[in-house]
Design a protein around this nucleic acid. Sequence first.
DNA 1: TGCCAGGCCGGGT
DNA 2: ACCCGGCATGGC
Length: 216
Amino acid sequence: MSQADTILAMYETMHAALGDSAWWPGETPFEIAIGAILTQNTNWTNVEKAISNLRKSDLLTPEAMHNVPIHDLAELIRPAGYYNIKARRIFNFLSFLRDEVSYNISLLKEYSLDRIRPKLLAVNGIGPETADAILLYAFEFPTFVIDAYTARLVHRHGLAFEGIEYDELQSLFMDVLPQDVAIYNEYHALIVRIGKDWCKKKQGLCDTCPLQPFLE
DNA sequence: TGCCAGGCCGGGT
DNA sequence: ACCCGGCATGGC
């Protein structure tokens, strides 16, 4: 089976086994973007606690959040871990929203992908995965999200050499899949769901994983 | 109890 | 261009 066919077939297999994912967890584009920063190298259950604190304080809008002293914001997001650096990263993102669209986050949807992605990457604390997650899940731009689960999957199934870079990994999927937001959304969601349940770093539960047949 | 979780940055070589 | 330490909580 060619590499391209494998990538397509793995999608069909995961989707058949798990069904629709209804991703990303989040009520609004802004909430999704904040969640994307909070979940950097962090379990989602911890992120939920942080977002719950923000919601209780009625801070899930850009301007309201930006008006909170950064130290207070850090305390609110404490359960998400790395809370000092993440408070700074969120603040950088909020400053970007103020400067770019006067906090009117929905205006970002009118940008082209090629124009908005570099702008997000220029925000200190937003790297390629966080940028793509925001673009795909908050604003429905057709860009594919690569995360640790995806890299692990690719390497485990011999689809690329270790050390392959983010953009190359992304091309691996985007050159094969139809340019379709719903597909990119669902594919990444399925990979994470599979990863959480079967393909953790050290635990080997792959004998029951739906993708096990692809290990040949 | 130690290991892990939906990264990214900054400094050193 | 690579490599590495730092950042931190909560669940199992």
